[in-house]
């Protein structure tokens, strides 16, 4: 970047630079991210929520499926979020639901991130007919409203232990085209960059170009996209559970809780508000983290100069 220079005879342009600390990109990204205050707060909150759901859920003295003698209790010390008509402790259920939602969302993000990246990168790199065909397939998925396909697919999902995983697979199957389109676009533009041509001139092979040059440069955008998918997946999972095709009783999820308790809004509002608020807070955190990451990775921020 800008240098301050001294008239040192002995080499044109061979002066030492003014600021001595070389900044690696990773550190630059972290620094920029931390400057985004909301994103930083969201990250901390998100980590706390994850810990609460996974560790706290295990420690809490009621399980999500434990009957308690208290029915329809408003929030109290014993039941911070109150209880429902059957006597389930809502706090335990919300923690369980949060756990499910986060598990599913992270799985969806990872699966569709990886699959979509590979698909999009392959399409972009091969180009031509292969590209056309591969992107057609991706478009195919995008034409159908996700909720309908998800409902069809998830309808015969067996209830029980691994049910959530299948929902994750279904949602990943519906979200990967977004990643694929994005990555393809990135690869197409990176492929035209001169440094790729440069690498080819000294004999770099395809694999080296992909893994040393294209992937590292595409990583930022992919990470941001995958973060957004986490938020999308959380909302999609809760919506699916809400209409009855997602996680099913006796297991529970935040969407299912809202669905089960929607008629209680006016009589026992806690049953409706707590799970809903958890969804909003989680999704909000993830969206803010995504925004922070976008800012952090974006080095095209224009600086107005002559």
């Amino acid at each position: 970047m800008a240098e301050t220079t001294h008239p040192v005879p002995g080499g044109p342009g061979a002066q030492d630079s003014g600021d001595p600390v070389p900044v690696s990109r990773a550190r630059l990204v972290v620094r920029r991210f931390l400057r985004h205050r909301l994103a930083t707060v969201s990250l901390v909150l998100f980590v706390l929520l994850v810990l609460l759901a996974f560790v706290g859920g295990a420690l809490w003295h009621y399980g999500y499926d434990t009957f308690t003698p208290d029915n329809s209790q408003p929030p109290s010390a014993a039941h911070p979020f109150g209880t429902d008509a059957t006597g389930y402790d809502l706090f335990a259920q919300v923690l369980r639901g949060t756990q499910r939602s986060i598990e599913i969302a992270l799985f969806v993000a990872a699966a569709s991130g990886i699959f979509g990246s590979v698909w999009g990168a392959a399409a972009g790199l091969y180009g031509g007919r292969v590209d056309t065909l591969m992107m057609r397939v991706a478009d195919l998925v995008l034409i159908f409203p996700a909720i309908a396909v998800a409902a069809v697919l998830a309808n015969n999902v067996a209830t029980g232990g691994q049910g959530w995983l299948l929902i994750g697979v279904v949602l990943a199957a519906l979200t990967w085209p977004y990643v694929a389109r994005l990555v393809r676009g990135l690869v197409l533009s990176l492929r035209e960059r001169e440094f790729i041509a440069a690498a080819r001139t000294f004999g770099a092979g395809s694999w080296r170009i992909i893994f040393r040059h294209i992937l590292p440069n595409a990583m930022g955008t992919i990470v941001v996209a995958v973060t957004i998918i986490v938020a999308v997946a959380i909302l999609a999972e809760t919506a699916l559970s809400f209409i009855g095709f997602g996680v099913r009783a006796p297991d529970t999820s935040l969407g299912l809780l809202v669905s089960q308790n929607q008629s209680a809004v006016s009589t026992r509002p806690w049953l409706f508000y707590f799970p809903g608020l958890f969804i909003v807070v989680i999704a909000l955190c993830v969206n803010f983290i995504g925004d922070g990451l976008r800012d952090a990775f974006d080095n095209t921020r224009s600086r107005s100069r002559t």
């Binding site: 809903g276 969804i279 989680i282 999704a283």
Partner: peptide
């Protein structure tokens, strides 16, 4: 905008 983006439609 962020709040609405994070709000489940059914809720």
């Amino acid at each position: 905008g962020f709040l609405l983006l994070s709000m489940p439609a059914f809720w």
